[in-house]
């Protein structure tokens, strides 16, 4: 690490073959995730009748739309080397605020605006504390998680169901893709968000600066980059994504409850890691995170098709996958410990 005699090697032969030019090993996990997704799907298709039906694939998106949205926000945060533990709690708070304000008779558009504003504000506050007080993101967002969960119960301890007609019609509306396959508006929103995120993270100065901050924050500062703006910005984005995911979740459940989305932050982090993003920051892809979510989704689908396997196998499977991908990252990235 100190002499130029041992330069860091980041090339992987596989990557080089795939693009024909110098491609870092960092793409390999994403490809592996894709291969895994195809494999898992293939296993399902081979073993269960009806697994290959278009609607199963569509359901994969429908059932995980909110997770996709959260994972997108989480990708931004993790690329800068941070972490956001508050996402699950913000999702719950969003469902709660949405349900309660709808019950109070507020018009749906206003409710949406309110929730989005609340999510971004929470993210902004956490980002400000993280950046200006230099407290570890882990602790700050943990406090954010407690705060958001607690606020849920301040709004109400019981589950509140959503009866607003706009929300209900939006939730139940199906967009037919073919004769037998249809998706919901949630999927459209989630995929649109993915597209926007890909553009922002990979093509704009804001996005590239996020990578720079994740690579070396002190260097980014000395390079004269707007580190503060980006570091705070990613938490605002994550907060906003959590709020959007919260709205999608309330469409999915048609209720608001303080115990919604418990542990969802773990699923989001797992998806992001499985999608090839390094938790140490600086490397990652939005599309990788999308693939990560889909892999988790396929596993759940497989287990539900299997029928006799209990739900806890999902957790064990996710844990095992995490392990696999983490070990793979070590092999391909050869990062310093």
């Amino acid at each position: 690490m100190t002499t130029s005699a041992t330069p860091v090697k980041g090339k992987a032969p596989l990557g080089a073959i795939l693009r024909g030019r110098s491609v870092p090993g960092r793409v390999v996990p994403v490809i592996a995730t894709f291969v895994l997704f195809v494999l898992l799907f293939g296993v399902g298709a081979a073993r269960y009748e009806g697994f290959t039906s278009g609607q199963v694939v569509a359901n994969l998106f429908i059932d995980n739309a909110f997770l996709i949205v959260i994972a997108v926000g989480m990708t931004f945060v993790i690329v800068t080397g941070g972490i956001d533990l508050s996402v699950g709690a913000v999702v719950a708070l969003s469902t709660m605020v949405a349900a309660a304000s709808l019950r109070a008779g507020l018009p749906a558009p206003l409710v949406v605006l309110l929730v989005l504003l609340m999510g971004s504000t929470l993210g902004l506050l956490m980002g400000l504390v993280i950046h200006y007080f230099e407290i570890q993101p882990f602790i700050v967002t943990l406090a954010g998680m407690f705060l958001a969960r607690g606020l849920c119960f301040v709004v109400g301890v019981e589950s509140i169901s959503i009866k607003d007609p706009t929300f209900r019609s939006f939730a139940t509306a199906a967009i037919p893709l073919s004769q037998n396959v249809s998706i919901t508006w949630s999927v459209v929103i989630a995929l649109a968000l993915v597209a926007v995120a890909v553009w922002v993270l990979h093509r704009t100065r804001f996005g590239r600066t996020a990578y720079a901050v994740g690579g070396s924050e002190s260097s980014a500062t000395l390079m004269g980059l707007p580190v503060a703006k980006v570091k705070i910005g990613v938490y605002v984005i994550s907060g906003l994504c959590s709020a959007i995911a919260g709205l999608l979740f309330s469409l999915y459940m048609l209720s608001g409850y303080g115990l919604h989305a418990v542990g969802m932050e773990l699923d989001a982090i797992a998806s992001v890691v499985i999608g090839g993003t390094l938790l140490s920051g600086g490397v990652g892809y939005v599309l990788g995170s999308l693939l990560g979510v889909l892999v988790l989704g396929v596993i759940q689908t497989l287990i539900s098709f299997q029928g006799t396997l209990s739900s806890w196998w999902t957790k064990i499977a996710i844990g095992t996958l995490l392990l696999l991908f983490i070990v793979m990252q070590r092999v391909f990235m050869r990062r310093q410990p």
Partner: peptide
């Protein structure tokens, strides 16, 4: 359940 809010406040305050 609202303990969480206070926990958050204390964490933030101490930090």
């Amino acid at each position: 359940e609202i303990t969480l809010v206070f926990k958050a406040v204390v964490v933030i305050a101490v930090c």
